[in-house]
Design a protein around this nucleic acid. Structure first.
Length: 284
DNA sequence: CTTATGACCTGATAGC
DNA sequence: TGCTATCAGGTCATAA
């Protein structure tokens, strides 16, 4: 999705419309984060268009784990950033001029060339963060997200799992440990590495952790090449579904024969999430 | 400090 | 056809 967003680089933002304020977090809002839940959430701060890159030229895209950003440069050279998290159903769509506005388009950036960028999210688990500067965003990522799973190395992952007394799948899903792994790819990576998702992370020997890191890199690389996994909602910036769901070896296949040994895949709950594994090919 | 749990939302689907 | 229950790709505050 980030790569698709590259198509707007060089364009100028000529207007921003926030149709649902509760997906938006601006500087000064509590937590700088996802504190939109709960009965007594503090009143959100006011925002201005320029906080959302109005009038800025779009100069760069960025990503770390599941977080994506658009960097804008103002007339006086200041670089601001908009961070986007997709949650489960969110997406960012580039709308051609005069295209119909999709349902649940909560924030819309109007571009000088007539196109629009829409943050769309039916379930609203995703959000949009406005950062005063690009540096603020980078610092936030550095503080809250582990190394990106697409490039994580065995030694790095080993250090980060060494102190985790929880199931390895729970650690993989923790974005501070490694950024970018969700429920699908956690199961796929454990399967390809021959590791049970419920194995205690700190007990894995280093060669197995190295294999897990390699599995993560390979799976994410392959999935990106296929445009991601579309179970139902996911689309890229142009609206096209991904194709990697056909490459899943375990996710969504509980009860089906294991692709490696033929034994029926087990399905259960690990780390409070539906999980699928092969009891023969994967060990603790 | 680390880990587990419930809550946050909407929409698709299955079963009656 | 229409109702209800269940489930889903994520992350947070709070409890333990």
């Amino acid at each position: 999705m980030r790569r698709g967003l590259g198509a707007v680089l060089g364009a100028r933002v000529v207007g921003v419309r926030v149709r649902r304020r509760d997906v938006l977090v601006v500087p000064g809002d509590p937590m700088g984060g996802w504190s939109r839940q709960g009965a007594e959430r503090p009143r959100p701060r006011r925002y201005t268009g320029s906080m959302l890159l109005d009038g800025h030229e779009l100069v760069e895209t960025a990503r770390r784990g599941k977080r994506m950003a658009l960097i804008g440069r103002s007339a006086d050279g200041e670089r601001r950033a908009i961070e986007i998290g997709l949650g489960m159903t969110g997406w960012v769509r580039i709308l051609p001029a005069r295209a119909h506005t999709p349902d649940h388009a909560h924030v819309i950036w109007k571009l000088g060339d007539g196109r629009r960028i829409a943050f769309v999210d039916a379930r609203r688990f995703g959000g949009v963060w406005a950062w005063d500067t690009e540096d603020d965003l980078r610092a936030h990522w550095e503080a809250t997200l582990g190394p990106d799973a697409l490039t994580v190395t065995g030694p790095t992952l080993r250090v980060r799992l060494a102190r985790a007394s929880r199931p390895v799948k729970a650690a993989l899903l923790d974005q501070r440990v490694v950024a970018g792994v969700g429920n699908i790819y956690a199961d796929e990576a454990c399967f390809r590495a021959g590791i049970l998702p419920q194995a205690i992370a700190s007990e894995l020997l280093s060669d197995r952790v190295a294999r897990l890191a390699g599995s993560l890199r390979a799976i994410l690389r392959d999935s990106i090449r296929e445009g991601g996994s579309t179970l139902r909602d996911f689309r890229d910036a142009e609206g096209a579904p991904g194709g990697y769901q056909h490459g899943h070896l375990v996710y969504g296949r509980g009860g089906e024969p294991c692709s490696a040994c033929g034994r029926a895949l087990e399905q259960g709950t690990v780390a409070q999430r539906t999980s699928v594994w092969c009891a023969s090919c994967q060990t603790g």
